[in-house]
């Protein structure tokens, strides 16, 4: 399948030139990290030195330290990062695809009255529990009132919102900077008794990354031609069957892209991990930042940790990259 817009050789050369320059810009910093991981402190500070064996004598001291002294920490953090990131990315993708499909194929009309009632009762519940009412009672009172208001006043106030507003509400949850919300989140998980567990991390990453997944996949689902779905519906296929066997395969490139993105977001998250984990659930980003202590930054150790942290993601990108391809989609549509 060749591009019919056959580019002239000059254009091809230009394309390659741009790609190569961009690749150098991307790869050189990583090369520098790799070289730094082989340097003794004195080689770092007397630098710049570029080539091992030519400019300076490489030393495995940093690798030995990270795998030796820090070995148990690194291994635990590695397993934590991998399991947390994979689990939360999978859940995020699943829930996100569901919601995104809903938002592109159905019409939602949440009533303003209901939302106002909900917020009002929520505030009431919080005020009650602050004033000393037991939490259970406060929740019960708030809930009861909510349904009461919903059934009476809520019905009269008919103005409603649309899909846009639902989507916008979702994404607006990402606006507050993490430093501001991290202590409430800490208290939340403390109350649930989930501090220092992977469950807490998976739950928070899923919730935090879900809006992004929804937004991205909404666009990909919109790009999927609806006539195929309609004909399937006429054939009597259920909504869920259409979703799983027609829509998802058609949106595969978008799914893969979204998966990669939410995976790296969870893989790299720092502040929430810092607060929710003590020893058992510590993740790799904490280790990276830990390489800067009272003695200043230990560049050589930090470089090693950065390198071993990228590796699995690179492998994942290599494996999944092929799915961001046109071929799959075209085949599916025609088949």
């Amino acid at each position: 399948m060749r591009n019919p817009l056959k580019p002239s050789p000059l254009q091809v050369a230009f394309t390659y030139a741009v790609l190569v320059i961009a690749a150098i810009v991307v790869l050189f910093p990583l090369y520098w990290v790799a070289v730094t991981s082989l340097k003794l402190p004195i080689d770092v500070f007397n630098g710049p030195f570029y080539l091992p064996f030519v400019d300076f004598k490489p030393s495995p001291h940093a690798w030995q330290y990270v795998f030796g002294v820090l070995g148990p920490d690194v291994k635990r953090a590695y397993l934590n990062t991998a399991s947390v990131a994979l689990a939360s990315a999978a859940i995020t993708l699943f829930l996100g695809a569901f919601a995104a499909y809903g938002l592109t194929r159905f019409e939602y009309r949440p009533r303003v009255g209901a939302i106002v009632a909900f917020i009002g009762c929520l505030v009431l519940g919080v005020v009650l529990s602050v004033l000393g009412t037991p939490v259970g009672v406060a929740v019960a009172v708030a809930l009861a009132l909510f349904f009461l208001v919903l059934q009476t006043l809520g019905r009269r106030f008919k103005r409603s919102l649309g899909n846009q507003d639902v989507a916008f509400w979702m994404i607006s949850n990402r606006i507050l900077p993490p430093v501001v919300v991290v202590i409430p989140i800490y208290l939340l998980f403390q109350q649930l008794g989930l501090l220092d567990t992977r469950t807490a991390l998976i739950a928070s990453y899923t919730a935090v990354n879900l809006p992004i997944a929804v937004w991205l996949m909404r666009d990909y689902f919109m790009g999927v031609p609806q006539d195929v779905e309609e004909s399937a519906q006429i054939d009597g296929a259920s909504r869920y069957r259409i979703f799983f066997s027609i829509v998802l395969p058609l949106a595969a490139p978008g799914l893969v892209a979204t998966f990669l993105l939410v995976l790296v977001f969870a893989w790299n998250e720092y502040l929430v991990a810092l607060f929710l984990s003590k020893a058992n659930a510590q993740t790799m980003p904490l280790l990276v930042s830990a390489m800067s202590g009272t003695r200043g930054t230990e560049w050589w150790y930090m470089s090693v940790v950065i390198l071993i942290m990228i590796l699995p993601v690179v492998v994942m990108a290599i494996i999944l990259e092929r799915y961001i391809e046109r071929g799959l989609i075209v085949g599916a549509v025609k088949g």
């Binding site: 630098g47 790299n268 790799m284 930054t297 560049w299 940790v305 942290m309 993601v313 690179v314 290599i318």
Partner: peptide, 29 residues
């Protein structure tokens, strides 16, 4: 394609330290 995805794989804290090394005008590359 794979190369251009790489920077996402590094934790932001790590990227920040990496750029400190790169922007150092006395001993950086």
């Amino acid at each position: 394609r794979v190369v251009f995805m790489l920077p996402l794989a590094i934790t932001p804290v790590g990227i920040a330290y990496m750029f400190r090394m790169l922007t150092d005008t006395s001993k950086g590359p």
